[in-house]
Design a binder for these strands. Sequence first.
DNA 1: TTGTATGCGTTATCAT
DNA 2: ATGATAACGCATACAA
Lengths: 336, 336
Amino acid sequence: MNIGEIARRAGVSRSTVSYALTGKRPVSEATRRRIQDVIDELDYKPNAAARALAEGRTRTIGLVIPPAAARLTHMQLDFVAAVVEAAAKVDLDVLLSPSGGDHDRSFERMISGRRVDGAIVMEIRVQDARVERLLDEELPFVGIGHTARADRMCWIDVDYATLIGRCVHHLADLGHSAVALVNRSPELVASGYGPGLRAAEGFGAAVAERGIAGYAYLCGDDAASGRSVVERIRAEHPEVTGIATLNEAALPGVQHGLEDAGLRVPRDVSIVGVAAAQWAQDFRPPLTAADVPAQQMGAQAVELLVERIAAPDTIPRHILLTPPISLRSSSAPAPR
Amino acid sequence: MNIGEIARRAGVSRSTVSYALTGKRPVSEATRRRIQDVIDELDYKPNAAARALAEGRTRTIGLVIPPAAARLTHMQLDFVAAVVEAAAKVDLDVLLSPSGGDHDRSFERMISGRRVDGAIVMEIRVQDARVERLLDEELPFVGIGHTARADRMCWIDVDYATLIGRCVHHLADLGHSAVALVNRSPELVASGYGPGLRAAEGFGAAVAERGIAGYAYLCGDDAASGRSVVERIRAEHPEVTGIATLNEAALPGVQHGLEDAGLRVPRDVSIVGVAAAQWAQDFRPPLTAADVPAQQMGAQAVELLVERIAAPDTIPRHILLTPPISLRSSSAPAPR
DNA sequence: TTGTATGCGTTATCAT
DNA sequence: ATGATAACGCATACAA
């Protein structure tokens, strides 16, 4: 079923059908109805590929997610969900590309095949090949996270340096004098993962400012690693009574590890994190944390992208969020 | 950059370039090289929409996910991840459509716009408008889950009736004489959600067979509901010492609720579930559960779909999985 | 208000 | 082994 067939049955030309559909040209009420009847009868829908070819746009956006998708964190999952919902709301389809490094086939198909009108890229690294690729392909995009050269792109991010700093201050305020940072995985941070690097900075600055002892640990993004990082902290710095973290996935393991060591949260050890709100609430005990508004961010990313697609040559906008810390039950005054 | 430009610069016709690219017709080594050089130089990639239009296929599959995407369970997330990975592996792109009922715009775009060569539909209900739609549109698809008329479609599913039955038998074997089923949400089950209905059947059959007391409860897919269902169970049937569930999302709340009531797992109450393996392991205490191999299922769904796209008129294949229960730490002999 | 003709970038069917 | 050319289904500039 194509537009020609509709035109034939309605006794009009193809262009009239097309215009009746798009409304880009006035069509008399009579013929409009006649056409609509035929369309309804055969339930005709224009072919997306043909339309994309003729129109030069696909009405689709790409969403570039981390490749090891099975290990998406709650926060990442919330981003994906929010992006998909927000896109659907403005009648945009979402094409998923699981790609991290460069030269990824699905990423390349998306970009150079012009399968999408624009893209949202998750888990941006400080230097990111995908960003370079998108820039020189001149495809509109927005990052969730930003590169070192932040001015060249459109992005939305969370101010991890400040947030982890606030975690430290909160712990210091509670009287903790030795704290540890449980950062993301060694591989991720080594590859220049922005939040990891910035969290480390913020942590260093804050402990220096407060004059307390601070020890930064890298930790794999899984429960087992969380467990073992606790063992390392206990062995190397048993005086630590406060933990700041942005590693959601490790936290259940951290919790188990503390339990194994006979330590209770928050009586013996306080934990303060940066995490998705929903997740922080459901943690046990409910986690004192800077709640990252992942859903809102996903929706805003779509907004930014839509803007950018409409006006690709304006200067890139940025949004940097610094959500407040929500006090819950995982932090308490330092034990005496 | 289009194929014509490549042809011009290489001094050949467009068709020759096309054939050099697809290999569907022999091309002399000399011209092939010449063409390839031009292609590499301009890094030309064929336009996806044009190709789709000419070829009649999009090299894209649709993935229909539940609409309230923010609340995807771990198991659902694992499906999505597995599908995306498996699809990427065979150079298929994935278009996401968050749609539950019928008449969903993104679903309709996908189907009638012929944006995809086939689709994978998650969270199938016993009677499912999307399935009907796909059937009469004659678009190849496979369901994760099956309808009442299972023979008409291609699907892969988990045998919830049997698995929940096994949970009950496991509890009975441990001496529990009063058990409860924590099912999925009232809305979901009321709308004919297969796993919910089949779990209830399996539960009923098993408690009858063992001659123990069994109480089936519906429960929203969230922690708060989990908490309140425990309160209800405690109030109405305080003798219950065993819980069988397929409601992952409620389980943290169930756990909290039991704690609030001063009950410990598994000392006072045993919990046995049907859940994603990863999640069951990370639960506290590690959950005795039938581990749903979500990743494998996602990959198999893609395989089935690829098969079906290649041969749409063969009789539909089905895969019904019954993974064994993995004993972990959430189940123990009934308290005396 | 409506119709005609052309272009979008490929693939594929004829020819040669 | 290669070239011309007609689809593919729609949008739109140009005519009437």
